[in-house]
């Protein structure tokens, strides 16, 4: 177990390093991308630009710039080029909304994905299977911002049952928090429910044909118990690994589209706005946050694997 943790930590540091260098390099290659020009604004003279370049250290070699930026990120003083605000404060500000979105949606899509997957597998070929399959296909074919816009218009403006967007902190008013998040949760879940139910359906159908399932039935175990204990437990492994990755990406701001259409002002929307301004420091921090979440969650997933399937050993 200790070896597993150490290895994963080393991998996490490696991934963070590579991703931060890559993001840094992408931004270095922009022609006319000199941040001094954007900090200075349109009216800045050449002298002022040179002054800014010197003050911010843009005239230093690129590796010096990289290490200075990393140092600022880790001691919490990194500042946005164009907005002049502390990036970590902004992330801290956006994180509750993003976490609320991720946790609620992650729970909904996992539960409904498993439920629909099980229904379609045990009713394979029957009406329930076909109807849910059609819904799954529509789900994976609908962009979240389109669904979100429909929800905001029909349920928000027309019916008045959901708010028109925005985020209310949980600590401030739990009821408002819930009512502002229910629509984003469902909209974000639709896509994943579609994917997960299809994946689970095919894994379940494969597993149902295994010899050990026949053995279990032959022993006289009830069908419900065969499904829950023998079939589902083994079929959940691919679902758990998908879930870990998707959940991690959403924590890292991956639900940009959903966050933007519902104006949740989470990490994703912050990233989108920063990218629009070609503002390097916030993007660097958000991508590192995502990478960290992905590495962390995949370690958690591996531990869950070992719980679900004792044959799997944690070797890193």
């Amino acid at each position: 177990m200790r070896r597993f943790v150490v290895r994963r930590l080393a991998a996490a540091v490696g991934v963070l390093f590579v991703i931060s260098v890559l993001t840094f390099l992408i931004f270095q290659t922009i022609p006319n991308g000199d941040p001094a020009l954007r900090i200075g604004g349109r009216l800045a003279t050449a002298q002022e630009i040179a002054q800014i370049r010197h003050e911010w250290g843009f005239d230093r070699p690129i590796y010096v710039q990289y290490f200075r930026t990393m140092e600022k990120i880790f001691n919490g003083t990194v500042v946005s080029y164009t907005q002049g605000v502390n990036v970590l404060d902004q992330i801290r500000h956006g994180l509750p909304a993003t976490l609320s979105l991720a946790v609620g949606a992650g729970f909904i899509w996992l539960m409904l994905g498993i439920l629909f997957g099980v229904i379609t597998a045990i009713k394979a070929g029957r009406f329930a299977d076909r109807a849910l399959t059609v819904l799954a296909f529509i789900g994976v074919s609908s962009p979240p911002f389109f669904l979100g816009a429909l929800v905001i218009y029909y349920l928000g403006y027309k019916a008045g049952v959901v708010p028109l967007g925005g985020y209310v902190p949980l600590g401030q008013d739990p009821a408002q928090w819930f009512s502002h998040l229910i629509a984003p949760w469902l909209v974000l879940s639709v896509l994943f429910i579609g994917i997960y139910s299809r994946v689970l359906r095919s894994t379940l159908l494969d597993t149902l044909g295994e010899d050990y399932v026949r053995t279990a039935r032959a022993k006289g175990i009830s069908e419900r118990r065969v499904l829950a204990r023998h079939v589902l437990r083994n079929s959940l492994i691919p679902i758990i690994s998908l879930w870990g990755l998707d959940f991690a990406q959403i924590i890292g701001g991956g639900a940009i589209l959903t966050e933007s259409v519902f104006s949740l002002h989470g990490v994703g929307q912050f990233a989108a706005e920063s990218i629009g301004r070609l503002d390097l420091p916030p993007i660097l921090v958000v991508t590192m946050l995502t990478a960290f979440a992905v590495v962390l969650l995949s370690a958690v997933v591996d531990i869950l694997y070992a719980v679900l399937d004792p044959r799997i050993r944690l070797s890193g």
Binding site: L22, G33, G253, G268, G276, I283, T290, V294
Partner: peptide, 23 residues
């Protein structure tokens, strides 16, 4: 491939798209 994979698709797409739309 792993590095691209760890990047969220939309963030990577938006970053590259925004930059290349300028340059």
């Amino acid at each position: 491939l792993d590095v691209i994979w760890a990047y969220p698709v939309v963030i990577l797409g938006v970053a590259l798209g925004a930059i290349l739309a300028v340059s």
